[in-house]
Write a protein that binds this DNA or RNA. Structure first.
Lengths: 341, 341
DNA sequence: TTGTAGGCGTTATCAA
DNA sequence: TTGATAACGCCTACAA
């Protein structure tokens, strides 16, 4: 058994069973070339029989810092964030750091608990998609010495590095696409308005609409309680309830879940998509292309977002005095059947 | 600034600036009642100004074990596993442990690397959905002293605790449902056959079919390369290509992604669901209910799976000599529009 | 109530 | 090539 009376085997135990000194064991581990082949083999055999595993806490204590990066996700069940995480992992792997994932699930208290834990673990850097990007907690993290980068949000004051996607531009792209296809009456579906992303997308939509010289009242805004499928469905019902001449021929949804709900409602009500109702979503989640009518959507460069964030946090770790950058990525419209007959 | 010449503030630094001894600082941290209010406040102020953060490595080194549990996921992008993770998190939180998530992404080497790291970190226990449940690596983990429980898989020899769902039963439930609804010719869609889960579901389907006295040849098996949307689509094309009198009136797909692909293909080919083709999926992923035609599916108790696995690993940590249990959960059929006219 | 000392496991330096 | 030793930061007896 590996554990001798409850505690795992240590270098000392290995040294004892191999009949060498503790320093020699350490050399086998860290500079094997300094050890003669014979002793090395004896030590390695001892390690195998004892089931020796290096104690990372002790290493880290000695080294003063860990070899890990952390990402505190806003919602582990949202594919958007898992894609971002994958991008981070790529960069972490390249820097031979390991990545630990934490999930706040939209709960500020949980996020804070994770942040404390991660600082205590002396991670090299923290990436976080915060519940509230303007929370003062984040400043405290950096003051205490851990580099921190904000992902998919931006802070009003520019006191942090951050990477995000230009949601205003995304909204503009969506509407320009619909305008190009000849729609003269369009619905924006999304909410609550307190979400920065929703607002930005709506603002972009309005800008494009105005730029095309269309009257404001022809861009109908339907609010939702949340960005979920159900709300898309009920928005669809409200849409269907409008008098025919006021009814939009196209809808731009603030995310794909809303769009899928809307699509489902339309299909079950016998409304043809895109002939009678064109739909544009946002996020281009995996299921967007797999929907009954494949969904046109605004795609964000998710993996790249993560990769870049990881690089920023490493840069900050290397040069603590560096100046903070707010990087804004450009979204891209992916046209599919839901907007073209 | 927190860091004095690169290194973070330690209890010693706090003691120095507060003008007390190191032991007193430790007491403020761990038994505040033993410290007079006045000194405590002085110490706390010192901590605040220095930006003191406990060093978890040092604590852990002294304590001999960490307060964390780990889950090595097979695929972080699959909602099934994130649900399982959420169940684990619930149990971890209840035991006031924190959970770290790792992702193997179906890569054995990556899984192994994670396992090594986690052992080095002296996590209290490891939960893993392994790339290969019969791999010998897993035995080595336990031999080296870290409790390990297998999630959503079972090992041929019963040398580990494991929690999984009865896939044979799941297959049976799906077919019984279709038989109940009068279908006399049914397709099973799924593959590759090397996946244990696929085989089990097919076996269950066959059992139910035989039990209903239906001829073997009326259960048509359509193989797929993988359990993804695209494969479901192409299976749908093969299905449509069958001569009308040989064409099944219902399909049981080995997972929901296949079912969504099949549904999409059917809708675009103008086949009515469920009137001309009934569809049953498996997993009941979030989008199953949000599909164009809401999908009947076999649901697995995902969160409960995770919760139970966490409890098992904690039990094993508490009683290293305990006997291993293979827990098999019961799936449940969720009937929706895709099978009822 | 506060201070002192020893040790957790690892690594690196220095001496043999 | 190998061995002895000190140090990383924290916690807890035990002593004052």
């Amino acid at each position: 058994m590996a554990a001798r009376q409850g505690r795992a085997a240590s270098v000392k135990d290995v040294a004892a069973t191999a009949g060498v000194s503790l320093g020699t064991v350490s050399n086998v581990l860290n500079r094997p070339d300094r050890v003669s082949a014979a002793t090395r083999e004896r030590v390695e055999r001892a390690m195998a029989t004892l089931g020796f595993v290096r104690n990372e806490s002790a290493r880290q204590l000695r080294a003063g810092s860990s070899r890990t990066l952390a990402y505190v996700m806003l919602d582990a069940k949202n594919p958007f964030f898992t894609d971002v995480a994958q991008g981070i992992e790529t960069a972490a792997e390249a820097a031979s750091l390991s990545l630990v994932l934490c999930n706040s699930g939209h709960r500020a208290a949980r996020e804070q608990a994770h942040l404390v834990l991660l600082q205590q673990q002396r991670v090299q850097g923290i990436l976080v998609t915060p519940v509230d990007p303007d929370a003062p907690d984040l400043v405290e993290v950096r003051r205490r010495g851990t580099p921190l980068v904000i992902v998919d949000r931006t802070r009003a004051d520019a006191t942090f590095c951050s990477v995000a996607v230009d949601d205003v531009l995304g909204g503009r792209l969506a509407l320009e696409h619909l305008i190009d296809r000849g729609h003269r009456r369009v619905a924006f579906i999304g909410g609550p308005a307190t979400l920065g992303q929703v607002n930005d997308r709506l603002q972009g939509a309005r800008e494009a609409w105005a730029a095309a010289g269309r009257p404001v009242e022809d861009l109908v805004v339907l609010g939702t309680e949340a960005l979920v499928v159900d709300e898309g469905r009920s928005a669809g019902q409200r849409l269907a309830g409008l008098p025919a001449r006021r009814r939009p021929t196209a809808a731009f949804c603030a995310n794909d879940l809303l769009a899928l709900g809307l699509l489902q409602q339309a299909i079950s009500a016998g409304i043809r998509v895109p002939e009678e109702l064109a739909i544009v979503g946002y996020d281009d989640i995996e299921f967007a292309g797999a929907a009954a009518v494949p969904l046109t959507s605004v795609r964000q460069p998710r993996q790249e977002l993560g990769r870049t964030a990881a690089e920023l946090v490493l840069a900050e770790a290397a040069h603590p005095g560096h100046s903070h950058q707010q990087i804004l990525f450009t979204p891209e419209l992916v046209a599919r059947a839901s907007t073209q007959a």
